[in-house]
């Protein structure tokens, strides 16, 4: 496999980075990077770290990094995940208020501890923290319950002062969305599977409305809805498919759609194959609505989706 850390890869311009990923030769990993400066979204770092965990460090070839930002990658813990010695020496400053280095979560208890520690680390107030805690919890639980990934979830986050936003990347190298959703719903493509997974009330664990005792199929819809209402980017990449929720215009009226393809978005169904799922999200702290008011929007849309699905199953009266 080959992956290149570019000069810039954030959710708005991440597509070339994804297209440049070479998934061939899965037993080897070659990492190259921009020579001058590397400025990337946490989901990019989480993806590289997740690949590193799958491969023996003797089969990882990371070119000598020349960019000044190599210290940042080191501080985020990337080279520890890759288990390679780069010879970079840094003075570690307290991470509070700026970032959460790469972290691997394999158990529910580790998630509980992570969410508790995360809030003070990012210096969030309780109202800002609520949406972020929900997002992290739902995404990591998805990995733990559905991905069947032996390495669990790999995540990291970064606060950006200029935009006053938190950017977050959560990645796994498990079975991917298509296999997980196909347990209950047949789909032809990864993109179609992503579309279904983002719809309210759809879970791979059952076809029944209301879900199972453990899953309702609301988690991803909830996260996409939070991003939509707050006008944030949200990206999900699995297999060959990638869906990206684009920012709404600030003046536009909030309208949540059960079908993610009806939201303002971009998509690609022919990307290099990512074994597992990668999710990136930006959370603007200036715009973040109170979680409680988000729930009103979300429930209205959820209800509408259930009604439409029920209606689709109605027997049609035959007039002759």
């Amino acid at each position: 496999m080959k992956i290149h850390l570019p000069n810039s890869a954030f959710l708005g311009n991440i597509d070339p980075f994804l297209r440049g990923f070479d998934e061939s030769h899965p037993k080897k990993l070659e990492i190259t990077a921009n020579k001058k400066w590397i400025s990337v979204h946490p989901v990019v770092l989480s993806m590289v770290a997740a690949l590193g965990l799958k491969i023996d460090s003797s089969n990882i070839d990371c070119e000598k990094l020349e960019a000044g930002s190599k210290h940042y990658l080191s501080r985020m813990g990337l080279f520890d995940f890759l288990n390679i010695n780069t010879g970079i020496s840094i003075t570690e400053h307290e991470s509070a208020g700026r970032f959460i280095p790469l972290k691997q979560i394999k158990k529910a208890e580790e998630l509980t501890k992570f969410v508790t520690d995360m809030i003070p680390m990012l210096h969030l107030n309780p109202k800002q923290a609520e949406s972020i805690s929900h997002i992290v919890t739902e995404l990591v639980r998805n990995v733990l319950e559905h991905s069947i990934s032996e390495n669990g979830a790999i995540l990291c986050a970064q606060y950006y002062k200029k935009s006053n936003s938190i950017r977050l990347g959560i990645v796994d190298t498990g079975i991917g969305i298509k296999k997980a959703i196909n347990i209950s719903y047949p789909t032809r493509t990864d993109l179609e599977s992503i579309q279904l997974a983002l719809m309210p009330g759809i879970t791979g664990t059952t076809k029944k409305e209301g879900g199972t005792e453990f899953n309702a199929g609301a988690g991803l819809f909830l996260i996409k809805s939070i991003a939509n209402v707050n006008r944030d980017f949200f990206m999900i990449y699995s297999g060959n498919g990638m869906y990206k929720l684009l920012k709404r215009k600030s003046a536009s009226k909030i309208k949540l759609h059960p079908d993610p393809f009806k939201d303002k978005h971009s998509k690609d169904g022919e990307l290099p194959y990512w074994q597992g799922t990668a999710v990136g999200i930006d959370i603007s702290l200036d715009q973040t609505r109170e979680f409680s008011s988000l729930l009103d929007y979300i429930w209205e849309t959820y209800k509408q989706a259930i009604k439409e699905r029920k209606k689709a199953k109605y027997k049609h009266v035959k007039f002759i």
């Binding site: 609520e130 009330g201 029944k208 409305e209 209301g210 309702a216 609301a218 979680f291 409680s292 729930l295 009103d296 979300i298 429930w299 959820y302 209800k303 259930i306 009604k307 029920k310």
Partner: peptide, 19 residues
Amino acid sequence: NETIQKVINIVSNYMQERE
């Protein structure tokens, strides 16, 4: 609190909407 009430209402409502 208000948020928890809303979450409980959402879950109890969609469970009552199921077939």
